[in-house]
Design a protein around this nucleic acid. Sequence first.
DNA 1: ATGGCTACTCCTAGTAGA
Length: 258
Amino acid sequence: MKLATWNVNSIRIRLPRLLAWLERRRPDVVCLQEVKVTDEDFPRAELEALGYRVLVAGQRTYNGVAILSRAEPTEVARALPDDGDDAQRRLLVADVGGLRVVNVYGPNGQEVGSEKYAYKLDWYRRFRAFLDAGADAGRPVAVCGDLNIAPEDRDVWDPERWRGQVMASEPERAAFRSLLAWGLSDALRLHRLEGGLFTWWDYRAGAFHRGWGLRIDHILVSASVARGCSAVEIDRDERKGPKPSDHVPVVATLAGAG
DNA sequence: ATGGCTACTCCTAGTAGA
């Protein structure tokens, strides 16, 4: 089966590209981030017409996550347990077949030392506690999404320029490692060890064509899933052409039925 | 690299993204 994650940066603007990509790629499960619409405004019918079931934890303007799946999903959670009623929509968890799919849109953090940076680190602390309490790394689990963390120097285009900056700071990298320590593997790194593999490029300054990217979108898998993970691809071409998201999809090929 | 963009909104200016 193919499991994908994509920060679409507005499902409204990206719907034509998303539909074309789904028809071409035929993923079995897709985690979307930054859909930027409420549940009611989510383009459910267009996606169902392609054969997908749709779960949405939507929000107007900001954030918002969704899971598309060919098989029937069972919703497990749509917020962290200590989120308030008006919390930012950054989490959606569903069981699809035997796989627990944890879709995450990690906070941006804005700037090291800012209030939003503190929120980001605290969010990851709460997310790790959620995994501890509500999931079992001994079972098939995949944590997918835009984590907004470049885990190592090889995941940024210029390590010296990014050293200590938001997305690449040591406390953020420690938060990423705390997810691995829970019992997950970085699926891409099971197959590809080289640098220069990026999933996001700034819209400004021709960053994509200059190779100024970061790897901040990830698929993390528990051990049983890792054993059946035969490939992970970054759909870099989705950054080209008209109206791209600033992020591209990451697609893992896993053992087992869709 | 400190923004030359994009998308959003009580929409034409301010906020946020990363």
